[in-house]
Amino acid sequence: MEGTTVFTPSLEGMKLVKSENGEMLTKPFLDVCKLILPVLDKFGAAMALVKSDIGGNITRLETKYSTNPTKYNLLYSMVQEEVGAKTAKGSSSCTNGLLWLTRAMDFLVELFRNLLEHADWTMSQACLDSYGKTLKKWHGWLASSSFSVNVS
């Protein structure tokens, strides 16, 4: 198939993540997020922590979804429920998992953009630049310094 890349399934899946009303559908969204995991394997150990974090957040959301697929058909329904119960800010909440999953996806989009636009950069340069533009503001100094060591 000409024009097919490792990103083709994700791009095709993106067309299915919203309802007719523009709301995010839980299962299609998580299915698209899962498609990136095998791509991250291609980067080896450098992306192991990112892959683990993404996979864990997907699993957390899938576990909640599977308890009542009708109730949690829309991604926002999980967030609404946790906000109502005042559990959304908890470190093990689905809201927190969704927040970090989307932040990780932002990082990966920036990383792939860097790799495409800066073919002369090392993987470390591309990762550090992407991290600085996306995740660094959300991490404390310890996490930031750990990230620097992991990609070097």
Rank of each mutant, 00 (worst) to 15 (best):
E2K: 13
G3S: 13
T4H: 11
T4W: 09
T4C: 11
T4M: 09
T5I: 00
V6C: 10
T8V: 07
P9E: 10
L11T: 08
M14G: 14
L16R: 13
V17P: 09
V17C: 13
V17Y: 07
K18Q: 15
K18S: 12
K18V: 09
S19G: 04
E20G: 06
G22Q: 04
M24A: 04
M24L: 08
P28D: 04
P28A: 02
L30V: 06
D31G: 03
K34N: 14
K34W: 05
I36C: 13
P38F: 13
V39M: 09
D41S: 12
K42T: 11
K42L: 10
K42P: 05
F43I: 02
F43S: 05
G44F: 09
G44V: 12
A45R: 11
A46Q: 15
M47H: 08
V50M: 14
S52K: 15
S52R: 13
S52A: 14
D53A: 10
G55D: 15
G56M: 12
G56D: 06
I58D: 08
T59K: 12
L61G: 02
E62Y: 00
E62H: 02
K64I: 15
P69A: 11
P69D: 05
Y72T: 12
Y72R: 08
Y76T: 06
Y76W: 09
V79F: 01
Q80D: 15
E82T: 05
G84K: 12
K86W: 07
T87A: 02
T87C: 02
T87G: 00
K89V: 11
K89E: 15
G90H: 12
S91A: 13
S92Y: 08
L98V: 02
L98S: 04
L101R: 01
R103S: 00
A104L: 00
A104Q: 04
M105P: 06
M105R: 02
D106Y: 02
D106I: 03
F107C: 11
E110R: 01
L111W: 00
L115Q: 11
L115M: 14
H118A: 03
H118R: 02
W121D: 01
S124I: 01
S124G: 03
Q125L: 01
A126P: 10
L128G: 07
Y131M: 09
Y131V: 06
Y131E: 11
K133H: 07
K133F: 05
T134C: 07
K136H: 03
W138T: 14
W138N: 12
W138I: 14
G140N: 12
L142S: 02
L142K: 03
S144G: 07
S145M: 13
V149G: 07
